[in-house]
Design a protein around this nucleic acid. Structure first.
Lengths: 195, 195
DNA sequence: AAACTGAACATTTTGTTGATTGTTCAACAT
DNA sequence: ATGTTGAACAATCAACAAAATGTTCAGTTT
């Protein structure tokens, strides 16, 4: 039954090439199938739907984002500095997607629209990194102690939503967003500091 | 030339009735015109476009919202309590619009989509109230002094965007939003406190 | 039996048509 | 002159048909 996993991978690769080249909506199941010289029906023995292929593709690329976040969290400096850098990196990353790689951005949008659970899971993962930085900050004696760190991280996410989904506000001015993020982080940072 | 202003008002009233009953998209210029027993062309001598009538209608009703905000700002209690209440009131108000009065909500959406400048102006007005509460809080000795209060208010708006446009996140669970707003306000509040 | 196909089906997208509606303007009325 | 009209125009919308696409499954191959 290792055969099966291999075919799943081949499907994922073929689909990935199409997704990145033509975008999610412009790649069809029959194109993916014919790239692999198989029938459309057969695809469904490996993935229950096209959206699931897209989700698998996103999952396969998650590690890139995770590494990006990990790099910041594990970098030197105080928790406050890293927390700020963390959000800067996320903003620049999403903005780059919107701006440069419309194809991947379309994919991301399709997934978070049709699969809100997936988007929530990603936010939960992001929170793991946030919690680590909060813990570090408390250990440092920089941040005020809290008992529910995941909830605190959730609230930080609420306050920085604008920078996570800038397209929702039709704000495509990265320079404005950068300035607003700095100011918002100032506010959040002060709110976390030990009194 | 007082005649003119009167006709403008009559147009606004007729359009307003239609807007509130049938929504923005379902009221036509010829309906407004025939309600007033005039021609469609004549409407354009008083308003350059349908959207301008909608904007004028919104402007005419601004005072309701302003009074709502004024009531909170002028109410007793410390600046911190009022700041929190201010955002609660805004959340409940927008949510009520979405939920109850789809017609007015459609109007509001049309305006903020087609006239971003109008939405920005509204945010600027809201900031006036925020600044007043910030000033009060500083006078009280509750908040840390700042020099650029409008900018500070802007950052508070950034951090509370999610609660101002909940429909953007397809989050229609008022109970969840309430909880998130409380947490976010906790964070912001602490960030403002004097050290 | 297990793997696979491709035609059949259902859903979505696209294209097209005509009607509706926002807007303009030459002609008319005051 | 000034104010007003309603037909003309252009843009948008709604409804429908046609095409494309996602999904399923009876039947075929291995």
């Amino acid at each position: 039954m290792d055969e099966k996993a291999e075919t799943r991978d081949r499907i994922l690769e073929a689909a990935g090439r199409r997704f990145e080249h033509y975008g999610y909506s412009k790649t069809t199941m029959s194109e993916i199938a014919s790239d692999l010289k198989m029938s459309t029906g057969n695809l469904y023995r490996f993935y229950p739907s096209k959206l699931d292929i897209a989700e698998a593709h996103a999952r396969a690329h998650e590690c890139d984002e995770d590494e990006m976040m990990e790099a910041v969290v594990a970098s030197g400096g105080s928790a406050g500095v890293r927390l700020r850098e963390f959000h800067r990196v996320i903003l620049e990353h999403t903005f780059k997607l919107i701006d440069e790689s419309k194809k991947i951005f379309e994919l991301a949008q399709a997934i978070s629209r049709e699969r809100p659970a997936y988007a929530n899971r990603r936010l939960a993962i992001e929170r793991v990194y946030l919690v680590r930085m909060l813990e570090d900050g408390m250990a440092e004696g920089l941040f005020e102690p809290h008992d529910n760190l995941d909830e605190l991280a959730e609230m930080i996410q609420c306050a920085t939503m604008k920078f996570r989904y800038p397209q929702l506000y039709n704000c495509f001015r990265i320079d404005m967003l950068r300035r607003e993020l700095e100011g918002t982080m100032d506010l959040i940072y002060k709110g976390l500091l030990k009194r």
